[in-house]
């Protein structure tokens, strides 16, 4: 069964459907959250919150407005970004940055994980963006920076960053084609 169908069953309190849904989305949810939050323990915590939130509020999903996966991953991303920003605000970020420098680089860790076809495609398509487009998109989406922070880090005017983000996403869409 697909995520859309499962989520509808989950909305009715079907725990077995939730188990199936878990099998389908726990990897994408966890992977995305870890990509943003980075710290493994915190990533697990946020992922758990997201998955439990799926259970609690599955009834809010509206299939007329987009796919279940899109809904779920948007929720996961929002929660991950919330976490990383509050952590950053609390100054934990520096500590984690320091810790990370003693660990293998994140990308090496993820390389060990099975690289799906989709990942390969997205990576290739990201490579085709200009450096500024790519940085604008990935700093925001994967690192959880606001576009203002991205502008600061890249020393670019705000308007330029907004445009790079839009162009980056649009080019990504063209490159990935109508597969979605």
């Amino acid at each position: 069964m697909e995520a859309d169908e499962l989520l509808m069953l989950v909305a009715g309190g079907d725990q077995r459907a939730f188990e199936e849904l878990y099998a389908l989305v726990s990897g994408p949810v966890f992977g995305l959250v870890r990509r943003v939050v980075r710290d493994p323990a915190q990533s697990e915590e946020v992922s758990q919150e997201v998955l439990l939130e799926l259970w609690r509020s599955a009834g809010r999903f509206d299939p007329g407005r987009g796919s279940a996966l899109s809904w779920i991953l948007t929720l996961a991303h929002r929660r991950a970004v919330d976490r990383v920003r509050s952590a950053r605000a609390a100054g934990e970020r520096e500590q984690r940055e320091a810790r990370r420098s003693h660990n293998p680089a994140f990308d090496q860790v993820t390389e060990e994980v099975e690289a799906g076809l989709e990942r390969e495609w997205v990576r290739r398509c990201l490579d085709r963006l200009t450096a500024l487009q790519r940085q604008s998109v990935t700093l925001a989406y994967y690192e959880g920076y606001t576009y203002r922070e991205v502008a600061e880090r890249l020393s670019l005017p705000l308007g330029t960053v907004k445009t790079r983000m839009r162009d980056g996403l649009t080019r990504l869409r063209e490159c990935l084609g109508g597969v979605a």
Binding site: Q15, A76, W121
Partner: peptide, 24 residues
Amino acid sequence: AEDAVRLAWSAAAPAPAAMRERVL
């Protein structure tokens, strides 16, 4: 937003086994 979700997908990684029991 759909474009952004493609970025999300590409980050998928197996979730820790212990997480499943806790969530369920």
